[in-house]
Nucleic acid binder design. Sequence first.
RNA 1: UCCUUAGUAGCUCAGUUGGUUAGAGCGGCGGACUGUUAAUCCGUAGGUCGUAAGUUCGAGUCUUACCUGAGGAGCCA
Length: 482
Amino acid sequence: MSKIKKTKIADLLKSEEFGKEVLVQGWVRTKRGNKQVVFITMNDGSGMNNIQIVADPAMFSEELLKSVTTGSSLSVYGTIAQSQGSGQTVEVMATEIIVHGLADADKYPLQPKKHSLEFLREIAHLRFRTNTFGAIARIRHNMIFAVHSFFNSKGFYNIHTPIITASDCEGAGEMFRVSTLNPKNPPLNEDGSVDWKQDFFARETSLTVSGQLEGELAAMAMSEIYTFGPTFRAENSNTTRHLAEFWMIEPEMAFYELEDNMNLAEEFLKYLIKYALDHCADDLRFLSDRLIEEERNKPQSERSMELIEKLKFVLDNDFARITYTEAVDILMKSKPQKEGKFQYQVKGFGTDLQSEHERYLVEKHFKKPVILTDYPKEIKSFYMKQNDDGLTVRAMDILFPGIGEIIGGSQREENLEKLETRMDELGMEKESLWWYLDTRRFGTVPHAGFGLGFERLMLFVTGMGNIRDVIPFPRTPKTAEF
RNA sequence: UCCUUAGUAGCUCAGUUGGUUAGAGCGGCGGACUGUUAAUCCGUAGGUCGUAAGUUCGAGUCUUACCUGAGGAGCCA
């Protein structure tokens, strides 16, 4: 066969060059037909929609057509034609079909039928081939691209912070140890503890739980930077919104105060959502329909807002901004509090807000994203800027409906003395963070930043209910397959 | 980690107060059908009932432990 350049299915479907010879390469979704005509539906990942291949059985061997099964991979040469059927406008009349890889229909797990998300998680190596996960993968790519596009357009620099780290001083959770020592027979100190000095890095090291501290170092010269990298938490979290390995975006800006930080975060989220609406219309449409179908047997009150409508709603409304103290006030006066409906009663200032409280604020009281600021210092990290009241810090959490905390950030404490005092209060080892404290010793400036959990953004944009479905290969407790 | 819940055919599920040969739909396979849209119609194969122990004349069904999944909580992004 002559050398024809392959055409992506997404482009083919837009084509009106009827009669033109083309090459289509992809995977079979379904095949149906009779002795007179065979229809093969193919997809190559270029979009939501499939191309229909029409084959005349007289032109192909029975053996060949038999080997075209759901999941098999094909190269199809043929001509673009206006469809005679009603389901599509464009199709390809096949002149040559090459089967690259068979897919034994008896063993191939993806059947042309509905599969549960739980089942597809068990075959995550194949789930890209479904409509749902194809759509999610494309949206995920677009969101990654949009993150870089947003910051680049604002003059931020992307910084790669280390994945292996020796600092465990952030209290951001349990860490995964990185070591080349023999776990069965590690070198020991005289007191029986492991002698990490003999390990690869001559100290105890772990996978990073945040790139923030290093990000701050870069911001103290480059002014505005962001990181976008993998993050690891060894917490035994079994929820629909936690992963042991996830991707986090952490911008850090010199000469930013909390207000600037909030403005940036809100603009950033809206940019990403708008980008999805502008660039992933087909995929969002499909996911929206999927969600409606899934929720059809739920009572009206439990159904979520239609996906695209929900995205537009967030885009069109300012986020509510209140302080922690105001939030506690609202909660104290709330119906569920008075009626004892909260599992955890709000006991005034100092109460660490529970999921149910955050959900009440976002979903019942404000009915839109909420930014909570100025939390009690006791429930926040050491590096957050202390307010003059001596009680609160310049923290901000952005809460989203259905997801909870999507962003956590703060203005940082730039005053060396205050920072060291706080570290002492918490019993932290200042020596190992000498480099971090140096930024406060030399040319310190007010600065701020935040962290966005990329998969939590993906949850919101795709409307999916489980974080394990918006990352290709989820790592969770007891699961590291693939 | 705690609480709740589930595990029966490749998938989704039914299986009564413990009772004899464990069912359905979808998918697979065989066949029919001149353009189909997860096609339709007819036929057919397919199960150590999560694992282990126990109670019982008898366990898919009851008890205990463990494994795995899911939902919620905590931790957080």
